[in-house]
Structures are given as C-alpha cells and as structure tokens.
C-alpha cells in the first residue's frame, strides 16, 4: 500500500480505510496483534486484515460487517483526523486541474493544515514531482510529516515549519504551481512569485471571504500575475429513491366501471439533501508570466 501506488493485499504497516457505511469511514493503521473497535464489533488485524485483499468484506465480532478499502486521497479526505478546517474533494479536483498538476510537477503549498490537499497533490505529481509544503504551526507540521511517512509518500514531500508570509516557501525558482490557503494570502503572493519557475506557472489561492479575494487579486495584479480568475464550485449530491405519488379519488366515474381504491404511481427520482454545503471558499487562479 501507498497513497501513490495500488497493491492488492493488506500488509502489516499499511493504512487501510474501513468502510462502515456511506457516511462513515475510518482509517486504520494495520498492525500484527492489534484490534480496532467499530460499532459492529471488533476487527482483529492479524486474522481479519493482514493478507486479505483490499476490497474484502470483514465480518466483525458482533456479526456486522465492514469493507476494507485501499487508501486513496479521496477516502483519506473523508477519514482523516481534522486538526484544521480542510479542503474537500470538489475543491481539490478543481484546484488540481486548474493548477495543471501532473506527474513531475513541483508544487508549493501553504498551509499544510491537516494534509487533505497535500495527499491529493502527492498522488498527482508522483513519481517524479515534489511538494514543498509550509505550515507555521509546529505541532501540525510534525504530525503531517509523520503521516506522510506512514503513507509512504515522504520521499515526495518536504514539510517546512515556518511562516510563509514572512519567510516564504524555502525554495525559489522551482515551482510549477503554488497553492495558498492562509488567512492573508496577499502577504504571500510575492513569496509565491519568487518560488515559481522563471518560465512561469500557475497559482491558486483559497479564501472563504470576498474581502480576502479582493486583496489577493490586487496583490496578484501588482506582482504582474495574469489571467486572474475567481470561481466557486459547489457540489450537489442527489439521493436516489423511489417515491410514490398517490392519485386522488375523483369519485365514481360513469365512463369506467371500476374505481381505483389505493391508486398511486411510484417512480425513481432523486431528492436533494435537506441541507448542503453552500460555500467553502472562493478559488482565485492566476498565471505567472515568464520573467
């Protein structure tokens, strides 16, 4: 197992994703002799996990069952322990494409936060790219470094514990893309520019508030960035269900003999969830021209 390479069977030391149901997954560090409690009972790693195929059904002690899935950045995003607010897959997908990330890309990111986006970046830029990520909170920086090692992607990433607005990314002239998710991105735009390749590259800044976007856009203009574009992507999830619509009783009809008693028409449709995330953040993209 690795976050950048599939394998078929679960091995000691892997991180597996236990799928309980469609809104409940948990990450499990697979270790000989270890046990994991779920609401359906206990999972014994030595017998239930190690050597099993990813995707297998595991019957827990209480008779319920779960599936053990191969980790992916997307599953990790919904399973990871939050240390900060995180970016979700919808925004991550947009960021990845609009930053033109691909194998070999060199990327700068700040802040690392809980590492949700970092894992997606690493997946995309492997095996030849590199991620330089900056997190000013020491404990978070250490924790995420630990996770990268556990997930066997540490060779693709450098975590720096510094303030990106003051000290920049710790590299210069190497990045194809820069991503900013910090409270005052306009203070880091200059550093972003310095981190990027002389030949140019792409930048993205994620901000929840429009005032942040305005200041960032101004800073981008001042720093000579081009193609500045701000957008927002909203995910809508559709619940598939069969609904039944009753037909009213119009009383006896002279033209037909029978009067339907419990007439109803059922049909397959989707419903919107009662509540949905209405806003995550604005994504501002820009191109650094060749200098």
């Amino acid at each position: 197992m690795s976050f950048v390479e599939y394998s078929d069977c679960i091995q000691d030391g892997d991180v597996a994703i236990v799928y309980l149901n469609h809104n409940s997954v948990m990450p499990v560090k697979v270790q000989h002799g270890a046990q994991t409690q779920t609401r359906y009972g206990v999972i014994r790693h030595s017998s239930d996990l190690i050597g099993q195929r990813y995707g297998s059904k595991v019957t827990c002690s209480k008779g319920g069952w779960v599936y053990v899935l191969h980790p992916t950045p997307e599953l990790w995003t919904v399973a990871l322990p939050h240390r900060t607010q995180i970016l979700y897959t919808t925004d991550i997908a947009t960021i990845t494409m609009m930053l033109e990330l691909k194998p070999g890309s060199v990327v700068c990111e700040s802040g690392t936060g809980s590492g949700s986006l970092s894992h997606a970046i690493l997946r995309t830029i492997a095996p030849t790219g590199h991620l330089h990520t900056v997190e000013f909170h020491q404990q978070r920086a250490e924790k995420v470094q630990e996770e990268f090692t556990e997930h066997r992607v540490a060779h693709l990433v450098t975590v720096r514990n510094q303030d990106v607005c003051k000290d920049g990314f710790g590299v210069s002239g190497v990045a194809d893309a820069v991503f900013l998710d910090i409270p005052s991105p306009w203070e880091a735009v200059g550093h972003a520019r310095a981190a990027m390749k002389r030949q140019g590259g792409r930048l993205c800044s994620f901000s929840p508030c429009i005032e942040q976007v305005q200041r960032t856009c101004q800073a981008l203009v001042d720093q000579g960035f081009e193609e500045i574009s701000t957008l927002e992507v909203l995910l809508r999830v559709h619940d598939v269900r069969t609904v039944s619509l009753p037909l009213p009783d119009f009383g006896p009809d002279s033209r037909t003999e029978t009067s339907p008693n419990h007439a109803a028409i059922s049909l397959k449709t989707t419903t919107a969830p009662r509540e949905m995330p209405g806003h995550t953040g604005y994504l501002t993209f820009a191109t650094k021209p060749r200098t």
Binding site: Y19, H22, Y67, L69, T90, I210, V213, Q214, C217, Q218, I228, S229, T230, L231, E232, V233, L234, L235, R236, V237, H238, D239, V240, T270, Y282, T284
Partner: peptide, 21 residues
C-alpha cells in the same frame, strides 16, 4: 460496489474589480 454517489457541480465565476465585485 460501495460508496455510490450521484452528483453534479455548479460552477460560478466572479468578476473581482475594485468596487465592482
């Protein structure tokens, strides 16, 4: 299969200009 989701996304672009956002 598990983890089935039927989704779509909305995409909204913004004009960001001083006093005209």
């Amino acid at each position: 299969t598990v983890n089935l989701r039927l989704t779509d996304t909305w995409l909204r672009h913004y004009q960001v200009l001083p006093n005209r956002t």
